[in-house]
Computed example of a mutant assay.
Amino acid sequence: MITLFTFGPGLSLPDPSPFVTKTDVLLKMSGLSYQTQSGSIFSAPKGKLPYIDDDGHKVTDSTFIRAYLEDHYNIDFDEGYSSTQKALAWAVEKMLEDHLYFAVQALRWENDANFERGPAEFFRGVPAPMRAGFKAMIRRRVSRDLHGQGMGRHTPDEQFELARRDIDAVAELLGNKPYLLGDAICAADATVFAFLLGTLCPRFESALRRYTEQHKPLVAYVERMMERFYPDFTGCKKA
Rank of each mutant, 00 (worst) to 15 (best):
D55T: 14
P16Q: 00
D15M: 00
K237A: 08
R139H: 00
F195G: 09
R140A: 06
D55V: 14
Q149G: 09
L32D: 02
H147P: 08
D55G: 10
I65Q: 09
S17L: 12
Q149M: 10
K22P: 03
R108I: 11
A171D: 11
F122P: 08
G80N: 07
R144C: 07
A128Y: 08
V192Y: 09
N111F: 13
K177V: 04
G152L: 05
G80S: 05
Q214C: 07
R131H: 02
A87T: 11
K28D: 07
T21C: 02
F19W: 08
T84Q: 14
D166L: 01
V142F: 09
H215K: 12
S143T: 11
P50L: 10
F42T: 11
Y211L: 00
Y81C: 10
W109E: 02
T23G: 07
S82T: 13
K58T: 12
A113Q: 14
M137Q: 14
A103D: 03
T21M: 07
L4E: 07
D98A: 09
Q85W: 03
V170I: 12
E110I: 04
G118N: 01
Y101S: 06
A103S: 08
P156L: 04
G80D: 02
L173D: 03
L180S: 00
D76E: 06
G133F: 08
T3M: 08
V142R: 04
L4H: 00
V142K: 07
F233P: 09
H72L: 04
Y34R: 13
E223W: 06
R140C: 00
E93F: 05
R210Q: 15
K46E: 11
E93M: 14
H99E: 14
A120E: 10
S30V: 02
K48E: 10
I41H: 05
W109I: 09
G80M: 07
A128V: 10
R144K: 15
I2R: 09
W90G: 11
R144H: 12
L208M: 03
Y51P: 00
A103Q: 11
F115C: 04
N176T: 06
F7R: 12
A169M: 12
D53H: 10
P178C: 07
R140L: 06
G31N: 10
D157P: 05
Y73I: 00
A188E: 12
L196G: 10
R139K: 14
L4K: 05
F7G: 01
I75T: 02
Q37D: 02
I52D: 09
T199G: 08
I65P: 09
T191W: 07
S12F: 11
R210T: 14
S143R: 14
G148P: 05
I185M: 10
F7A: 06
K86S: 01
R131S: 02
D168S: 05
D145C: 11
A128S: 09
E110L: 15
A44G: 03
V104A: 13
N176K: 12
R124V: 05
T155Y: 06
G31M: 07
A239K: 13
T84R: 12
I75C: 01
